[in-house]
């Protein structure tokens, strides 16, 4: 099966129902995308598929064979992603950092679709869990990135 990840097409030999998360992490060695729950509960595994933030732990790889997949490894190749990362650094968002790949990509997807989100838009989009409780810093950073 061919996958297009961060603009590069690669061939992978996996069972077609393997979650995209494990293809990224184990088959391709791209470990920036995290496993938190495996059940669409936390958002640590968020990647972009055709610009949409999706939870790769419950996404069979066969469903994304013809899609453009973007992962945290290439987030700064995207101008919006670059702004988001800059805001994350400026606001000093991460604590343990484990949820933050997913948070940054979720914010990137939001700002690509809605460049000037309202607080309600931010609350509706930024639903990933953070056990370190960085929620306020995340919301502030999204607002900063939108204004940047």
């Amino acid at each position: 099966m061919d996958l297009t990840i961060n603009g590069v097409t690669q061939r992978v030999e996996v069972e077609p129902d393997t979650p995209l998360l494990w293809v990224l992490r184990d088959t391709l060695g791209m470990t920036g995308t995290k496993y938190g729950c495996g059940a669409a509960q936390c958002g640590a595994c968020t990647v972009l598929v055709d610009g949409q933030a999706i939870r790769s732990c419950v996404t069979p790889v066969e469903n994304v064979a013809n899609a453009a997949i973007h992962t945290i490894e290439a987030v700064e190749a995207d101008p919006v992603g670059r702004k988001v990362v800059a805001a994350w650094v400026e606001q000093q968002v991460p604590q343990c950092g484990y949820c933050q790949s997913g948070q940054v990509l979720t914010a990137t997807a939001l700002l690509k679709q809605t460049p000037n989100p309202t607080d309600g838009d931010i609350a509706a989009a930024m639903v990933n869990l953070c056990r370190c409780g960085t929620y306020e810093a995340i919301a502030t950073a999204v607002r900063k990135a939108a204004g940047a």
Binding site: T31, G32, T33, V89, Q92, V93, P94, S101, V104
Partner: peptide, 21 residues
């Protein structure tokens, strides 16, 4: 003082045990 690990953690470069091979 800014934390020394935030950029790596905001770009997926921080490595945890679960990521090691």
């Amino acid at each position: 003082v800014p934390r020394i690990d935030v950029r790596d953690k905001a770009t997926g470069r921080a490595r945890y045990t679960i990521d090691l091979t």
